[in-house]
Design a protein around this nucleic acid. Structure first.
Lengths: 348, 348
DNA sequence: TTGAAAGCGCTAACAG
DNA sequence: CTGTTAGCGCTTTCAA
């Protein structure tokens, strides 16, 4: 009967306090689990608050306290599964400890200065997880200067002091390459991204190193440039297939490029993995859905999201983050696009 | 020289007012473009605010005013491009009129009641765009009761009074079917989603109607059930291909299912569009990236996002929304997966 | 253990 | 046109 009716406006702490016959402060303390309240009073306050359906007003608390129990995520793009997975991990981790997560997306079109955005986020969130688009170095300066807890995702280079959650690209790519080599492949193509330093460069490096370690010459012709997109992977793979001596296996810098390669290979009338083995990187959800399902290197995306939140919460709570750079392990996921190299039977 | 140094804490209205030698109210009025300030004073205040790098504190304004100039989006899932596109449109539209957009994601795992979520959103946002997962009817009740401006995305059924932005599924599917029929196809398969009322059902209905209109019997065998996923589309298409008389064209309930079908068709050794035509629905970005690129029915996703924001802003500003349901047109996008039916030459 | 006062940053309402 | 007062809902600080 005492349910707050819509239209009465939200129930405030004052309502609860009055109803419980105590001061606002006592009610506040009781509800926040602070000490200095008798067990009996606390029980009563909590009971009434529950009954009334009371919820703290985060705007008010933020204003008074500086704390909202909200963490913000700055994301460049919401149309890719990579980021989606990270957000799942981050969201779950946040909500588990009674924080909320809100996502702010960057768009080229919206003319917002870094400053404006960060100030806004700072005004309602207690901390920020930043996933920057490649080449958004202009943001780094602002983030570095921002006076709030921040964790970056897979960042390196300038401002390396910014706490970062990354995964081990080099190691992952190494394991992928060894897998191909164990399957008997020696002529292995690599589909790159744009020629920039970063995660993709690590993967390329591992490709080259593993080949070298196995006494296989790195043939520049086998390195074909794409751009992380399916279309880019398609074109890059097609160039590889057009070679006089095409590769018997292709390692794509990421899953989307691998899907493009899959298209290109099928289009050339070849079969995966019978004629050509293919391996991706990331293990986005779609990787398990293609036909055949994609062998790939799993980045622990959900875990990375969780880890980012936990690192951020540590910062928020004033705990010194031991390492400014957490590197999580990758894992080879063997599915249907890699197989033992078959002996060429066809007469070329 | 007068740049606010980080660490001094953010510049507040009081700072600006003091510096300009006016009261806070005058400063507030000047900065908010309210009347009652001389042009000269206003200029001066604005100048100083700019120089100091002043930004309103949204938490404070929300508390005082009830308005934050933030709109919230409730999204079930961030790993699909469909929602990503809607968010692009919404974000752009919001930022164009100096609003900000924040996204809150639902996760099954996080035990948050509808009430909790809506209350939170209400506390910092001026309005809400709700994209509900299928079957989240429990949320509807809460949304309906919530005392805040709300716009739904492609909702119908109960609580039809909730303002909704939708697109014309029936019409889109009709155009798609006519396209196939004009290409000479008569035996056309349909890949459904789960058997529920809603957008997918409209598309199926159009499929059936167009066939009937052209005097083609609707063969139940040609309707194969999937689940909106690539894997589901794959399996559903495979069943169609295994028929004694397989279809010469397939219409998939959405693009993801179409991609699965594409895999299945290729896997069966058939070629698209040479042997089988294929058409999807949605026109997510990936549709243009597959090989061949997917012919599909475009939902104006970005436009829907924009439209949702504009409808919401109207509500926020107290303008009565004329129609509680805006239905946007769809458009056939002919790409590479549909072609004239070839005369069967193979002897079965 | 409890409460009263003051203030976070802003704006509505009323006064000059 | 400009300023003063009060208050949004909460928590800190200080006093009882």
């Amino acid at each position: 009967m005492d349910k707050p009716r819509i239209g009465d406006g939200p129930v405030t702490l004052a309502h609860v306090a009055e109803r419980a016959g105590v001061s606002q402060m006592t009610a506040s303390r009781a509800l926040n689990g602070r000490s200095g309240v008798s067990a009996k009073t606390r029980r009563e306050v909590v009971r009434i608050a529950t009954q009334l359906g009371y919820r703290v007003n985060v705007a008010a608390r933020k204003l008074s306290n500086g704390r909202s129990r909200i963490i913000a995520v700055l994301a460049p793009d919401l149309t890719n599964q990579f980021i989606g997975q990270v957000l799942i991990g981050a969201g779950e981790a946040a909500r588990k400890v009674d924080y909320e997560m809100l996502v702010y997306t960057l768009f080229d079109e919206s003319r917002r200065s870094h400053d404006e955005v960060l100030r806004l986020l700072q005004q309602f969130a207690d901390g920020l997880i930043a996933i920057l688009p490649r080449g958004a170095n202009d943001y780094l300066q602002a983030l570095y200067a921002a006076n709030m807890p921040i964790v970056m995702l897979d960042h390196r280079g300038e401002f390396a002091a910014l706490p970062t959650i990354a995964s081990n690209h080099y190691e992952g790519a190494t394991v992928a390459m060894r897998h191909l080599i164990e399957l008997g492949h020696a002529r292995i193509g690599f589909l790159t991204g744009p020629d920039e330093p970063g995660a993709a460069a690590d993967r390329l490096l591992a490709y080259q190193h593993v080949l070298a370690q196995h006494g296989i010459r790195v043939d520049p012709q086998l390195i074909s440039q794409g751009d992380f997109t399916q279309r880019g992977g398609f074109e890059a793979a097609r160039r590889l297939l057009a070679l006089k001596r095409p590769p018997s296996a292709i390692f794509a810098v990421n899953d989307m490029a691998a899907f493009g390669a899959l298209d290109a290979i099928k289009d050339a009338g070849l079969s995966v993995p019978h004629d050509i083995s293919l391996i991706g990187f990331d293990d986005i959800p779609m990787a398990a859905q293609s036909h055949p399902p994609l062998t790939t290197v799993r980045q622990p995306l959900v875990w990375m999201g969780r880890s980012a939140v936990n690192t951020l919460l540590a910062q928020i709570n004033g705990i010194d983050v031991a390492s400014p750079r957490v590197v999580l392990p990758t894992e080879l996921v063997v599915r249907g696009t890699t197989a033992t190299m078959r002996v060429r039977e066809r007469v070329s």
